[in-house]
Amino acid sequence: MDAQKTLDTKGLACPMPIVKTKKAMKDMESGEVLEVQATDKGAQSDLAAWAKSGGHELMKSEETDGVFYFWIKKA
């Protein structure tokens, strides 16, 4: 999936993946897609809940070799 920006939060524990995602999203335009990579299992449900509460669209998420990938479209 095409993303305008990629954020690597691998190895970071909660709350850092979301703190960094939030910061990265601030610099993006509405409609742009951010790819987030994380290894913290908690990030999975938290990123989905965070995106929902902010009105962003979690377009896709998948897990490969212990790394979670998320594609979030900015509202």
């Binding site: 909660c14 709350p15 979301i18 703190v19 939030k22 938290d46 809940a49 965070w50 509460s53």
Partner: peptide, 14 residues
């Protein structure tokens, strides 16, 4: 019985 709890996700408090 003696517990009061309130839920605010941490990502709303960053």
């Amino acid at each position: 019985a003696s517990v009061t709890s309130m839920n605010v996700p941490y990502f709303d408090l960053i």
